[in-house]
Each structure stands twice: as C-alpha cells, then as structure tokens.
C-alpha cells in the first residue's frame, strides 16, 4: 500500500469532496444494481423495471446467473434439412434431417473449454422454443402454415391479427430469421455436392430430464423429443466469405 506523499495529505481537504462524490455515486449505483437483481418487490415495482433496465443497459447489464451454474431440465435439439435441385436440372429432392445439436455434443465431448460455435444450434433451439411458448395457440397455427413464399411483412400482419403481444411476434420473427439464415448457410455447405439448395427447413425438439426420484428407472435417453417442424424457408445465400467459413466448419464434422 504505497502511502500518499505528505504534501498531498496536507492538500487533502481541498479535494476530498471529489472522492466523496465518487463514493456516493458508487453507493447509489450499487443500490440501483441491488434493485435490478432483487426479486420482484413493492420497492422494485415502485422504481419500475423499464427504468432499471434503461440504467443497466448496456454496460451494467447482468442477470442472476452471472456466477456459478443454474438448473436446467430441458434438452433441446435443432435439426435441418434442405430441398436440393440437381445442377444439371431435373426433379429436386429433400435431404434427410441432420441433428446439429447432436453433432455439437459429439464435438464437445471431453472438451474442457468448448468452442462457442458448438452452442449455436442449442441456443437457436432454446430461443425458438421460447418464442413458440410466447405465441398464442392461434399464432402457433399460423406459424405451422408458413411457407417459403410468405414475406416477413405479411407474416407480421398475420401474426398480429391472430392476437398476442407484438413483442412476442418480433421475438419469434427475429429467431425465425436467424434460424433460417444459419440453416441455409449450413445446408449449402453440407449438401453442396448434391446440387443447389433451394429451400431449407428446420425443426426443434424438446424433452425433459426425468425427475431425480425416478433416476433408477428412467433416463434422459429414454425420453423421446417432442418435435416442432417449421415450414420451408427460401434459402439465404450469404456472402462468399460466409459460405467458405461454413464449408470449412462443416468439413471438420
């Protein structure tokens, strides 16, 4: 602890208020942060979630899971297939489903520091499942009927008409677009040898870990996935650089 020089100590009263103000700012900041992290309470409600969120976003953004590990009970899968037209013309064909989460799990086996790219499929599945839960039953019926010819603006109108919250519609459309583009880039690399990928389709699966009390009689492997297939989507080409990166990524698998 290097001491402050004596002449500085003598001058301290002049500028001590500056440091006191800084400390006061930190104390107020910590109180706001405590409110942001605290469970719902009248005090927190009085301040308001939006006001707290606007303060913490972006630099102080954090959740209750910043440290340690939490509980997860749901296993999810993300699978992709494509409609491929042969290069020489003729009738196209549909490929078989490829479960990307299974490939990622295989890549992460015995890896102490898994790569972030092997989380993509799982996170897309989680968010798509969440997006579907946020939609109403009528909206889910609309999603089921979507085809490659439906424009995003028309989809927004259809979903809004079906009720529910606009935020849920935006969330679904964002993840639908992300899943479509990721699936497209993957499909173009995966089935490049079979022809030109015209359309892609993805599906998400969901299954729950059996309760701890049933651990002797049931395991996760016994549980079937509850699948939800999204409609066909027009393929997203992406840049040459993006496609080349996917080529090498898919080639590694």
């Amino acid at each position: 602890m290097p001491p402050t020089p004596p002449e500085d100590v003598a001058a301290r009263p002049r500028h001590r208020w500056i440091v006191e103000v800084l400390l006061a700012v930190v104390v107020v900041h910590s109180v706001v942060l405590a409110l942001w992290l605290a469970p719902s309470s009248p005090l927190r409600d009085a301040v308001g979630d939006e006001r707290l969120a606007s303060y913490v976003d972006p630099y102080f953004q954090q959740g209750r899971d910043a440290v340690g590990v939490g509980t997860q009970q749901v296993d999810e899968s993300f699978s992709v297939r494509a409609f491929v037209a042969p290069d020489g013309g003729g009738k196209g064909s549909v490929t078989s489903w490829v479960d990307l989460t299974r490939l990622d799990n295989r890549a992460n086996a015995h890896a102490l520091a898994p790569r972030r790219v092997h989380l993509i499929a799982r996170r897309l599945a989680t968010n798509l499942n969440l997006a579907m839960f946020n939609l109403t039953a009528t909206q889910r019926k609309v999603v089921r009927k979507l085809t490659a010819d439906d424009l995003p603006s028309a989809v927004t109108v259809s979903l809004d008409k079906a009720g529910g919250r606009p935020a849920a519609v935006r969330f679904f459309q964002a993840y639908d677009q992300m899943a479509t583009q990721f699936a497209s880039l993957y499909a173009q690399s995966r089935w490049a040898g079979e022809g030109r990928v015209v359309q892609v389709q993805f599906r998400v699966g969901r299954r729950t870990v059996p309760p701890y009390a049933q651990r002797a009689s049931a395991s996760l492997d016994d549980q079937p996935f509850l699948d939800f297939s999204f409609g066909w989507r027009r393929v997203f080409r992406g840049s040459l650089e993006a496609r080349e990166t996917f080529d090498s990524f898919v080639g590694e698998r």
């Binding site: 509980t71 997860q72 296993d75 799990n105």
Partner: peptide
C-alpha cells in the same frame, strides 16, 4: 439435488 438434471443434459456433461 438441483444439479442432477443439469448433469444429465448432453451439453453439460463433457
């Protein structure tokens, strides 16, 4: 027992 279910998930059991 909370960590039991997490440990069963393929991505959480390297």
């Amino acid at each position: 027992t909370a960590l039991y279910s997490t440990m069963q998930l393929p991505e959480s059991r390297p």
